[in-house]
Nucleic acid binder design. Structure first.
Lengths: 112, 112
DNA sequence: AGATATAGTATCCAAAAAGATACTATTGGA
DNA sequence: TCCAATAGTATCTTTTTGGATACTATATCT
């Protein structure tokens, strides 16, 4: 059997999740609920405005988060997880769980 | 609450899985069992030897796959998934499942 | 009139990931 | 003696991703 990355579903799922700040943003919105742009910017230590906007836009494009613009001045924009975005929660949770075990395992194997 | 990517377990789990060919290699070894370097190279259409070696080494370093070298000439090397690597299967399976739903959903929303 | 607050853009630069391509060691067999 | 087979290395280039930093629009408040 011959295969290419483009035909791999896991590869595609990963490409949606990957991005330096995407998992964090998703987890954050999943647990904290609605947040404004500025709040996210404060919470995500070290993120640049360009990156924040970029990651939010990409998540929005996949339908995972919602962007609500209030027509005020100064502007107010609220981000929240969509119902659809919540379908990722079990996967993120199991990755979180696996990662913790993995780190534990690494420590155990570092007897040197 | 303030957060950084380095403190996010999901981020870390992803970084182990990410790499253009890693998910494919894992899935392949999970389903096909043991494979030689040359067999993998033939199966993974378009991969360069450098990339193949690189991805295999990184997976091996995490303990997910096994490298068995037979001291023959010409050399013979067999790769297989480890028992530990198999603990990732449920996660990969759910990502596969999610990705399929996601594509279906995208098609439905493309009525334009 | 000028400062303030918010949610971004725009531009340029650095680092990381991936691709192309050629090369190597070894030894059993023709 | 020279070639084939296998599992890689080595080197250079391109592409992708992320970082630094400065700038903008605009109604309101003083």
């Amino acid at each position: 059997m011959k295969i290419k990355p483009e035909y791999c579903n896991v590869h595609d799922a990963l490409s949606i999740l990957v991005g330096k700040w995407k998992p964090i943003i998703l987890l954050y919105l999943m647990s904290e609920g609605t947040m404004r742009y500025g709040e996210l910017k404060k919470a995500l230590v070290g993120i640049t405005p360009k990156m924040l906007t970029n990651q939010l836009r990409e998540l929005e494009e996949e339908g995972l988060i919602n962007r609500k613009l209030y027509p005020e001045v100064p502007p107010k924009v609220e981000y929240s997880i969509t119902e659809y975005g919540m379908t990722l929660k079990p996967i993120l949770d199991s990755m979180h769980e696996w990662s913790m075990q993995h780190k534990k395992r690494k420590l155990e194997n570092t007897i040197d």
